[in-house]
Each structure stands twice: as structure tokens, then as C-alpha cells.
């Protein structure tokens, strides 16, 4: 599987995910009852889609294998120290990943708090909007003030619009 690991990490993960889906479809379809009302039955389409997924995955792997063999020069280039440098290195992607981790953490905390419940939606949303806005900004005073104002206005405006105007029950 060497050909999948060079510059193709993202695709490799997707292919594994698709492989798992194909297998899950076939396993799930095998557990379904035989058709009762029509010749296809509930297992028919999942089975066909599962087989088709596996066939196409095999085709993709073959073409990846061919590509990697057909371009040995490119492989050599990829092995050079410059090419081995992580994508985006020197272009500021490192700090972006840190920022992304912070954004993910704040979002997860917000969703977990909403799931657990017990806190006011409006205040929780205000804190979330302010924290996330700050995490995404360059932390200049001007931007932080705007983020704070937006957080305050939007948290109350959204709560009012959805509960009082649209009669939506919000998480509490």
C-alpha cells in the first residue's frame, strides 16, 4: 500500500472509509430477510451498491498503482527533502492548524454543554459566539470589540427569532 501513502493521505482515508462502507453494506444486507413483496427485497439495493463500491474501489486502487509506477520521476521528486516538507509548511498552515484545534474544541464544548443541558441557550450561545469569533480573528482590539457586539446581538436576536417568532423549542 506504499502508493497510497505518498501525497495521498486524504484519499487513503477516504478509500478506507469507502471500503468500510462497502463491507458494511454487504454484511448489513446479508442480515436482512428474503424478499416478500417484490423480487428485489430490502437487501437488493444495499447489496448491489456494496458490490459496486468494492469494484470501483478496486479500479481506483489499480489506477493509483499504475500512476505510481508510471511516474517514478515524480516519486523521486516527492522523496526529495523539499517535497517531504509538510504541505503548507512555511505558508502559515501550522498556526492555522492550532487555530482549527481551538475552533474544534470550542465547538465541541458548546455542543456538549447543549447536549448535557442545564445552561441557558442564550448565554451559552453568547459565550460560544464570542469565544469562536475571537479564536478565528487576529485578536486585534477592533476585531474583538466587533466580535463581542455581534455575539451579544446575535445570541439574543437568534433566541428571540426562533422562540418567539418561529415558535421553535431551543436546546436548554
Amino acid at each position: 500500500m506504499n502508493f497510497l501513502t505518498k501525497d495521498r493521505g486524504g484519499e487513503a482515508i477516504c478509500l478506507l472509509l469507502l471500503l468500510a462502507t462497502g463491507v458494511a453494506l454487504l454484511v448489513g444486507a446479508a442480515a436482512l430477510p428474503e424478499p416478500m413483496f417484490d423480487p428485489l427485497g430490502p437487501a437488493g439495493l444495499p447489496r448491489y451498491v456494496g458490490y459496486l463500491l468494492l469494484v470501483l474501489l478496486a479500479l481506483r486502487l489499480v489506477s493509483l498503482f499504475r500512476e505510481s509506477r508510471a511516474a517514478p520521476a515524480a516519486e523521486a521528486d516527492a522523496a526529495s527533502p523539499e517535497a517531504r516538507r509538510p504541505a503548507g509548511a512555511g505558508t502559515g498552515e501550522g498556526p492555522q492548524r492550532l487555530r482549527f484545534a481551538l475552533v474544534a474544541l470550542i465547538t465541541l464544548a458548546y455542543l456538549t454543554a447543549l447536549t448535557v443541558g442545564g445552561l441557558s441557550f442564550t448565554w451559552l450561545t453568547l459565550a460560544f459566539l464570542a469565544a469562536l469569533g475571537a479564536a478565528m480573528s487576529d485578536l486585534s482590539a477592533r476585531k474583538l470589540i466587533i466580535v463581542g457586539v455581534i455575539a451579544a446581538v446575535m445570541s439574543f436576536a437568534l433566541t428571540y427569532t426562533f422562540t418567539d417568532v418561529l415558535s421553535v423549542v431551543l436546546p436548554e
Binding site: L129, L132, M136
Partner: peptide, 15 residues
């Protein structure tokens, strides 16, 4: 700036 847009978009999605 996306710092102003994205947080509100996420809250709208959640609601």
C-alpha cells in the same frame, strides 16, 4: 471577516 460570519452560521445550523 469570517470571524464575524462563521460562528453565527454554526449557531444557525445547530438551531
Amino acid at each position: 471577516s469570517r470571524a464575524y460570519l462563521f460562528p453565527t452560521i454554526i449557531v444557525c445550523c445547530v438551531i
